[in-house]
Design a protein around this nucleic acid. Sequence first.
DNA 1: CATGAATGAGAGTTCATTCAT
DNA 2: GATGAATGAACTCTCATTCAT
Lengths: 204, 204, 204, 204
Amino acid sequence: MGIIERKEREKIEKRLLILEAAKQIFIEEGFEKASIRAISDRIEYSPATIYLYFKDKNELLFAIHELGFEKLLAEMSSAIDGIEDPIEQLRKRGYAYMKFAFENPEMYDLMFIQNAPIDTLKNQEVWSCGEQNFTLLCETIQSCIDANLIRIKDLNVAAMSIWSFMHGLVSLRIRNRFNKFNGDVDVHELMIQTLETMIAIVKV
Amino acid sequence: MGIIERKEREKIEKRLLILEAAKQIFIEEGFEKASIRAISDRIEYSPATIYLYFKDKNELLFAIHELGFEKLLAEMSSAIDGIEDPIEQLRKRGYAYMKFAFENPEMYDLMFIQNAPIDTLKNQEVWSCGEQNFTLLCETIQSCIDANLIRIKDLNVAAMSIWSFMHGLVSLRIRNRFNKFNGDVDVHELMIQTLETMIAIVKV
Amino acid sequence: MGIIERKEREKIEKRLLILEAAKQIFIEEGFEKASIRAISDRIEYSPATIYLYFKDKNELLFAIHELGFEKLLAEMSSAIDGIEDPIEQLRKRGYAYMKFAFENPEMYDLMFIQNAPIDTLKNQEVWSCGEQNFTLLCETIQSCIDANLIRIKDLNVAAMSIWSFMHGLVSLRIRNRFNKFNGDVDVHELMIQTLETMIAIVKV
Amino acid sequence: MGIIERKEREKIEKRLLILEAAKQIFIEEGFEKASIRAISDRIEYSPATIYLYFKDKNELLFAIHELGFEKLLAEMSSAIDGIEDPIEQLRKRGYAYMKFAFENPEMYDLMFIQNAPIDTLKNQEVWSCGEQNFTLLCETIQSCIDANLIRIKDLNVAAMSIWSFMHGLVSLRIRNRFNKFNGDVDVHELMIQTLETMIAIVKV
DNA sequence: CATGAATGAGAGTTCATTCAT
DNA sequence: GATGAATGAACTCTCATTCAT
């Protein structure tokens, strides 16, 4: 019994080890370059080994993608340290989200843009990190609603609005679709202005 | 003289023919599957033929992508037929955008999500269809601002806000990221509610 | 009768016109890049047209190659203008050969290194320019022999020796095989020294 | 420990096996026909397998090319077995070089005529087989100079002269440029005569 | 447990050549 | 006489995946 458990634990630990390493090359080299071969080379395991811990590439991607959510979760959590005002919490988390996206574009890509890993999701435990992030967002919003600080009263609507807005903002930027803006404007500056404006507007 | 013109016209038509056909497989089979070979198979031409009409794959993708913008442009234009109220125009165009995205998800993917053809874009004439779409959006917004109907006063800020919101909304949906919403809610219904709420909020 | 002759003449002239132009791009762009497509593009004829004047690529290459021999012939001829001393003639022609090779490496390549056009040669008239060049060399050598100025008495042996030496010298250079020489030596300088030494040695 | 070594050895052996096989088609079918697919077909492996042992085609060509130099080196070495007289050594090596070229024309082609693998060479260890061959030649020549047996006193000049002559001789032959000699003469016989004459001339 | 070795499938691209018009 | 259009046959190379060991 104890032996079996230990083996299980060891297996999980090794999986994590591989994953951590894989995440690194993923971040450094990007989605396109992240072939199984490249990953296994970097972590100094054989490609075949990866298949001992992950069913296929999708599952590996999904696992990495979960690591991303963990990181995002940590940053989103600490973003509101010491902040009481729900609106201010919302603002901080907005900036934290933007910051995460720009500092980890390849990760953001995997987490929110790529098709690949999401197909695996169906069979996953519901309470993944991705969900927790979403929950976090919902909590902040709920506080705002409870304190009657925002003009949207429905939690789901508010969550969808805010997430959509934030995701659109960063993903259009990451995918270079904001080139369309006149060359005179500083796009990054404009994004911040836009974010602030949206907060102002959503406030009661 | 007439002959030359006819030949020229035929060449353009054939290019369009290929393009249309290619667009079909593209739409039906998706971005990933759209290899040169798959395309040429479908249109029953040899792979080499494609290179008579398009310099490389990127140029072909770009052309398809322009086709998409043309279609979107047409739909965005007709969306406001007979509508005078700027806010109502904005609403109609929001729905038109959503409709386009859901009816042509692979196209939307290519136009706004993929990295691929955007790199080619740099050397294109500025006044591409993509720009015109953006211009259209700006015009509607400008009318709203002029009529003092919305709470955002800066055109760029408003354009970025609204486009980001809309893009986030449809792209998270297309990429299945709205699964996170509780199974009880009808996601599509929620999206409409969200869109309506945002319009309500942005209004003066 | 007259008509037929005129047509024939016109055909030959056009052939020459195409050829001259093709030679240019050949020289400028090199053997590897000289595809039929590239050639026809540059001369502003269709690829198909080339096949009206040349059976296949080999024949075209052969014709260009003959143009090269014409040029070489001209340079080899004028190289000895006003020179009486046969040995001095030999030296001048040696330098002329080297000069030609370095100024027209792609042409030299085609004329003396490539396999391609030589296969066509079998069916050509014997008295091509290539032959004339060879004859020229033989004449100079014969003068040297007649005047008892060189130590080789057999014409064929002398021709083969000298040509081999010269070809080896320039072709090893063109193909970068002289890199093996210590980096301290100026290869070009060494080649001249080598050429002079060989002349000195071959002299009685 | 032993296992690792065995595996390593097996890997090297397999590499050699592939190489040997590849060399064969190479020799039999020539440089132009030596595509990766042709090679893999012949050795009954998939094209992808080749890339497990060689980075790309250039590296494979380079390896074959090194094999050629090894062979040449062996033949050039054994050519002077039991020979003391430096001049006689030079003669024997001249014949060995010719013999190698005629028995392995495609190999010779790759080693001394083609552009292809030489570009890869830059990053190779300096002491490749190609260098050793050159060194061998230099040693023989140096002996001749030291014993005051040849009329050229500078090592570099002598090396360049002799190599150029030999390379010109065999490469013009390989590329069929000696057709120009009158049909009555036996070209091979003439080459031998030429080689002998050159030796005679270079002697003090 | 771990992997070395191998591969089938497929990617984009180029080229000499043909032929109906 | 000239060509636009088309193509078959190649090319090199990459990748996720498998399986005997």
